[in-house]
Structure formats: structure tokens, C-alpha cells
């Protein structure tokens, strides 16, 4: 896993002769440093290796892949200069609704007794469509009513969580089909995460969609004067963020083999943290998917490492909070330094 990333990051540095070295390289070194610190602490306090344990690494990546899927969408939103607070709630909502269409006939208390044993594509498509709809609502509110993205997605965050609770009056949705559970089984979530990351890495770097996303984040007025249909583009970006949150919801339900209304709580913040740690600037116009992937893995390594060292879970949250703030402070200083040039 780490070696793949190394290869990709190195590739960035070489490609596009004359381009500055990507920031991702710094973040990648930070990832390595954090992993090595845990390795050393592991030998000192736990008497064993942190990194040379394939099982632990697999679990670590599995744990963050759902966050990773969301953060790919959130990164794009942040690049436009916006924010998406709704992704965690959309995960919960889509997990519930998708699971409702994924129940097996062997389960006695199916929500839709006449709609059991459907092919997996039905619940998956349902989850994705619900996710896109949530994203479109966010995007339409932001683009056409011009309310701040913070407020629009805050509203969606609260409403979507409400829907996921109301859907079964708080009851979990269980007895899902084998076929549906497959996309959450084994390393499937990791594969989904990496495929999604690759697709949007390419989209941001090599397509017009990507160029316009950065242009809007850099200067929305100039983007508009340059002929970009800013409203339509924002609609697209938020719809994609919704789609990925929906996908994350489906994967979450499949992985747990059940859906609960509380799924995805606080995921939006982890996703934003992953993007920011990965170098995406909250003021817009700056950010890459490679950075976000590394940011996601840093979050995973920290959780896994602290657990490995048996650090109290409450301390873990305190430290995580500090690291997120530190990442933003670094971002602010980086911008200041740039202005002085």
C-alpha cells in the first residue's frame, strides 16, 4: 500500500517538467515519520513491530476507507471554496435506505416483505441516487440561493440524520443478502476507495471539470467572466460529493451487514480533516486527491497506532483534534509565506 503511494507521489514529482514539487511529498514524509514513531514506540512499550503486521495494516486501511471515499468528494467541494458538513449524515441515510432494499427473504422482519432478495444492483443504485439527490439539493441551495455552503450542508446534515432515524423509527435494518454484503466484505471497501480516488485524481488533473473546479476556487468572479457556468459547475461538484457519500453509505451497510441510523456520525469532520491534512486549502483553489489519500491514511495510522499503544480512546480524540488544528495553522502560514513572495 505505502509503496504504491510512494510510486505515485514520485511520479507526480517527475511528470510535468518545471512544475513545483507537489506538496503531497511533504505530507507523505510526515506519514512515514508518524509511522516510524509508532514503530519505535511499539518496540519500546509493546515489545513488537507496528508496521510488520499485515493484519493490523489491513484493518487500519479498512477502517479509514469509508472516510476516504467521502473525503474524495469533500476535497472537491473544498477546492471550489465550499464545505460539506452533510456527508456523514448522508452516509447514515443512504445506508438505511439502501439496506431496506437489500434484505433477504430469510429475514423475518423485512421492511418491504414483497421486495426481498433483489439483485444487489437495486440497493446499490438506490443508495447512490439518494446520495446524488442530497448533493443536488446542497448544490442548488448554494449555487442558486447563494446561501453559504456551511449553512446549506448543515441543514442537510441535520435533515438527513433525521431521515435515517425516521426511516425505521430508529430500528436497525438487518438480514441483508450475501450479494449485497459482498461489496463490504474483505478488502472490497479499500478497492472501492482506491478506484474512486484514482478516478477523481484523474478528473481533477486532466479534465476540463477539474480545471474549472480549481478556477472557481481560485477566483469565482474571474471564473464567471471567463465563461464558466459557475452555478452548473457547483451543482456538479456537490452532486459528486453526494454520490460518494451515498457510495460510502452502501459500503458501510454492506461491511456491517446491517444498517443503523447512527452510522457515519462525525464522518464529515474526519473527511474534512483528511482533506486538510492532505494539503487542501479551506480558502479554495488548492488541493489534490493524492494529498487527501495520504491524509486519510495518516488518520488511520494514528487511530491504529494509538490503539496499538493502548492509549485511552478519549486521549486519542484530543490528539486528533490538535493535529487537525495544526494542519490548518500550517496551511495559514503557507499562504502567508506565499503572499510575501
Amino acid at each position: 500500500m505505502n509503496t504504491n503511494l510512494a510510486a505515485e507521489t514520485a511520479g507526480n514529482a517527475v511528470s510535468g517538467s518545471g512544475r513545483r514539487l507537489p506538496q503531497e511529498l511533504n505530507i507523505f514524509f510526515i506519514l512515514i515519520a508518524i509511522a516510524l514513531i509508532f514503530e519505535v514506540l511499539g518496540w519500546i512499550f509493546a515489545g513488537q513491530s507496528f508496521l510488520l503486521n499485515p493484519q493490523r495494516l489491513t484493518i487500519m486501511i479498512l477502517q479509514v476507507s469509508v472516510i476516504g471515499i467521502i473525503s474524495v468528494g469533500v476535497t472537491q467541494v473544498i477546492i471550489t471554496g465550499g464545505i460539506d458538513l452533510s456527508s456523514g449524515s448522508v452516509v447514515g441515510m443512504t445506508a438505511m435506505i439502501a439496506a431496506g432494499f437489500a434484505q433477504s427473504s430469510t429475514w423475518a422482519r423485512a421492511i418491504y416483505p414483497s421486495l426481498t432478495d433483489l439483485p444487489a444492483i437495486v440497493p446499490i443504485a438506490t443508495g447512490l441516487i439518494i446520495g446524488v439527490l442530497a448533493g443536488l439539493i446542497n448544490g442548488a441551495l448554494i449555487a442558486y440561493t447563494r446561501i453559504p455552503p456551511f449553512i446549506a450542508t448543515l441543514g442537510m446534515m441535520v435533515s438527513a440524520r433525521g431521515i435515517s432515524k425516521w426511516y425505521t423509527k430508529g430500528q436497525p435494518v438487518s438480514g441483508l443478502t450475501e450479494q449485497f454484503n459482498f461489496i463490504g466484505s474483505s478488502v472490497a471497501p479499500v478497492v472501492v476507495f482506491l478506484v474512486v480516488a484514482l478516478i477523481f485524481h484523474i478528473a481533477l488533473r486532466y479534465t476540463r471539470y477539474g480545471k474549472f473546479t480549481y478556477a472557481i476556487g481560485a477566483n469565482v468572479q474571474a471564473a464567471r467572466v471567463s465563461g464558466i457556468n459557475v452555478e452548473a459547475h457547483l451543482l456538479k461538484v456537490y452532486a459528486i460529493a453526494g454520490l460518494l457519500a451515498g457510495l460510502a453509505g452502501v459500503v458501510t451497510a454492506a461491511r456491517a451487514q446491517t444498517a443503523q441510523s447512527g452510522m457515519g456520525v462525525m464522518y464529515e469532520l474526519d473527511a474534512i480533516a483528511a482533506a486538510v491534512i492532505g494539503g487542501t486549502s479551506l480558502s479554495g483553489g488548492v488541493g489534490r486527491i493524492t494529498g487527501t489519500v495520504i491524509g486519510t491514511i495518516i488518520l488511520g495510522v494514528m487511530t491504529s497506532g494509538f490503539t496499538f499503544l493502548r492509549v485511552d480512546a478519549y486521549y486519542q480524540e484530543v490528539i486528533k483534534g490538535m493535529i487537525i488544528v495544526a494542519a490548518v495553522v500550517v496551511d495559514v502560514y503557507r499562504q502567508k509565506a506565499r503572499r510575501k513572495v
Binding site: K211, Y214, A215, Q221, A222, V225, R338
Partner: peptide
Amino acid sequence: DTGCLLILDILENMQV
């Protein structure tokens, strides 16, 4: 205000 994409490079600014 309405011309440059200040934080982007010349290429991105020119081709937009």
C-alpha cells in the same frame, strides 16, 4: 478581483 486566478499558474490562467 475579476481577472487573475491568483493562486494558479500562468497555464491555468491562460487556458481557462
